[in-house]
């Protein structure tokens, strides 16, 4: 980390400015009897706090895309480690190690509908995850609620030369687009967390 992210730094400055304005109004409450003081009070006590809270929500949502955020839960650590499997057939590991996806947003790039970025049901499931993590029992094997959507793959691979010119892909292209056939039927080496300890790991060239 080291340096403070730009968004958080800006919000911190805005919070200090807001509190300063509120202190001015509290120390000179008689100023609120005048038009200018009323406007200042309304801005300091209503407009700015609401705006800052909205920006804070946006900052949290943006931050929830980060790999660091996803792996902050203990149960997700093996899935993070699976990105270091040294075998080309492992799709997430190959994408991560060859920088085919942004390393600071590894999880979110391929799981875009997960919890906070999904619909209302996904958000409620996210709350349920927090409950299970702290107060319940985490299942040994974690599975997706729904079959993996090909859209996540086609978002990048569609129209790509290697994808388009592959004969197998040409045959099933319509089925892939409609999710009748899953990409994972052929590319089935994913996050193999049960075999993690038996697989070789890539240790070089990884930057935090």
């Amino acid at each position: 980390m080291g340096t403070m992210p730009y968004l958080q730094q800006s919000l911190l400055i805005a919070v200090v400015v807001t509190i300063t304005l509120m202190v001015v109004v509290v120390l000179k409450p008689d100023s609120t009897s005048r038009r200018g003081g009323q406007v200042l009070g309304f801005v300091a006590f209503f407009v700015l706090p609401l705006a800052l809270t909205s920006f804070g929500v946006a900052a949290h949502l943006e931050h929830s895309k980060s790999t660091e955020f996803c792996l902050s839960c203990h149960v997700m650590e093996p899935y993070g480690e699976s990105l270091m499997i040294d075998a080309e057939e492992y799709v997430p590991a190959a994408h991560f190690q060859n920088s085919l996806i942004p390393r600071d947003q590894v999880c979110f790039t391929c799981h875009t509908t997960y919890t906070m970025y999904g619909d209302l049901r996904a958000k409620l499931q996210g709350l349920q995850h927090v409950y299970v993590y702290y107060l319940g029992t985490v299942p040994e094997k974690i599975e997706l609620y729904q079959p993996y959507n090909n859209r996540e793959c086609l978002n990048c691979h569609n129209d790509g030369r290697r994808f388009e010119e592959n004969e197998l892909h040409i045959e099933v292209r319509a089925e892939l687009a409609s999710n009748e056939t899953s990409c994972l039927e052929c590319h089935d080496a994913i996050h193999d967390v049960t075999a993690l300890n038996n697989l070789p790991k890539w240790t070089q060239g990884h930057h935090e």
């Binding site: 804070g56 980060s66 660091e68 955020f69 902050s72 927090v130």
Partner: peptide
């Protein structure tokens, strides 16, 4: 603001 520096759900 303090929560923005904590990377956790």
């Amino acid at each position: 603001t303090a929560t923005l520096f904590w990377s956790h759900p």
